[in-house]
Amino acid sequence: MAPLDDDQIFTADEGLELTQVPDGYVIYQVRRDRVHFLNPSAVAVFELCSEGVAAPEIIRYLQDAYQLPAPPTEMVRECIAMLVTEELIRPCSPSLSAA
């Protein structure tokens, strides 16, 4: 994946079924007949990406939510890259997201 621009936003793949389980979430990707297990922080990244939130805001959100001493920049960027690789989210333009 190319380096992530700060203003890059994403949209969730279509046909995803989310189910909460005691240790996180299961996402069933109907199109690929694949199942993904996400821990709670990965789910937060996924959901924020799905809502069109860009990486810097996600990093700030997680730092506040988990009261981290430093911004989880690398973790969030790696997580986003993995979500893109697995085709759970895909980059989109801000105008497309607003529509």
Binding site: E17, T19, V26, D33, V35, F37
Partner: peptide, 8 residues
């Protein structure tokens, strides 16, 4: 069919 979700 849909074995992965059955396992999940």
């Amino acid at each position: 069919s849909q074995v992965p979700i059955a396992l999940a």
